[in-house]
């Protein structure tokens, strides 16, 4: 049956239409729920707005939000907290993730079960995990205090959520616990794409296990490591629920990251213009950081 030349998407000259057609719903959705709010938020950050309403008339253009932001001690504190979180959590996620991936990449009895266990924290909803951890670290009847005292690390209970350092440590612990399975799964996928013969060749060349890890495994994983670290970093940057449920940003703003500060300004103090300015700064920092990390990963495979 002859088809209309215009509608026949199977023709070579029309083939790319089908691609655009299939992409359209997703693009529209993203435009609606991500791109549009993004522009609104950039727009808001240059206005003195308290509660944003779309039917409000535009306020005059001002950079007051940014001036206030850069002069604010809270902002720099949040930046410092976020930086510490990103560095510490990414580092330990990477260490634990690669370690567990190397472990479960070996062939042994119960390998499937071990892989499941490694991935398990990832499958638990964030808020539920955080509530469980909040109980574990409870200062009066938490498991951790009991354990620390039994082992002899401390001689009296630690008040986890009222000491700034302890609270920060707890937030890091929960984030690492929640984040490392993702790294592990990515690394495992990467490890399985390394041909066995690389290792055989290295063994014949006399490389010891440690040398094989440094000279074969890590370089072969570099592309995966780069992408994974960026994703983990962005996750830590934007993660809200773990900190909010665990500490709410306290004590003494010790765990107030940029995302918590944004939320607090927007929905706690209803300074949406100011909050938008924090959001825009966070976005810029994220874009620059991920660009740097992707560019640093050598494109060797």
């Amino acid at each position: 049956m002859p088809r209309s030349a215009f509608l026949d998407l199977a023709r070579p000259s029309r083939r790319h239409w089908l691609g655009y057609l299939l992409l359209a719903p997703a693009v529209l959705l993203i435009a609606l729920i991500i791109v549009y709010p993004l522009f609104v938020s950039v727009d808001l950050s240059f206005q003195n707005v308290n509660i944003a309403r779309l039917d409000q008339p535009r306020r005059p253009f001002t950079t007051a939000n940014y001036e206030r932001l850069f002069a604010s001690e809270d902002f720099w504190n949040a930046c410092w907290v976020t930086f510490k979180l990103v560095t510490i959590v990414s580092f330990f996620c990477f260490l634990l993730g690669l370690g567990t991936a190397l472990l479960v990449n070996n062939r042994f009895k119960g390998q499937a079960l071990a892989r499941l266990l490694v991935a398990l924290p990832w499958a638990i909803p964030e808020v539920i995990a955080v509530v469980i951890f909040a109980w574990l670290f409870d200062s009066s009847f938490g498991l951790m205090n009991w354990l620390f005292i039994k082992v002899g690390l401390v001689d009296q209970t630690i008040n986890w959520f009222s000491s700034p350092d302890a609270a920060f440590a707890v937030v890091c612990t929960v984030m690492v616990w929640k984040g490392y399975p993702f790294v592990s799964i990515m690394m495992l996928a990467g490890l399985q794409s390394i041909p066995e013969d690389f290792y055989n060749a290295a063994k014949v060349d006399g490389a010891r296990a440690w040398q094989r890890l440094i000279h074969i495994t890590i370089p072969s994983l570099m592309p995966v490591i780069g992408v994974t670290l960026v994703l983990v970093m962005l996750w830590v940057f934007r993660d809200f629920s773990i900190i909010y449920v665990l500490t709410g940003g306290g004590p003494l703003k010790a765990t107030q990251s940029l995302s918590i500060m944004t939320y607090e300004q927007a929905f706690g103090f209803f300074k949406m213009g100011y909050a938008s300015a924090i959001g825009v700064i966070t976005l810029i920092v994220c874009v620059i950081a991920s660009r740097l990390m992707i560019a640093r990963a050598p494109d060797n495979i």
Partner: peptide, 30 residues
Amino acid sequence: GDRDIAMVFQNYALYPHLTVARNMGFGLKM
């Protein structure tokens, strides 16, 4: 590595992240 033999593999097993020179020198470096 202790047998003092060298092996050539079917798919060559050259390390993709190293240059030719460093591929060839890998065993000596180890």
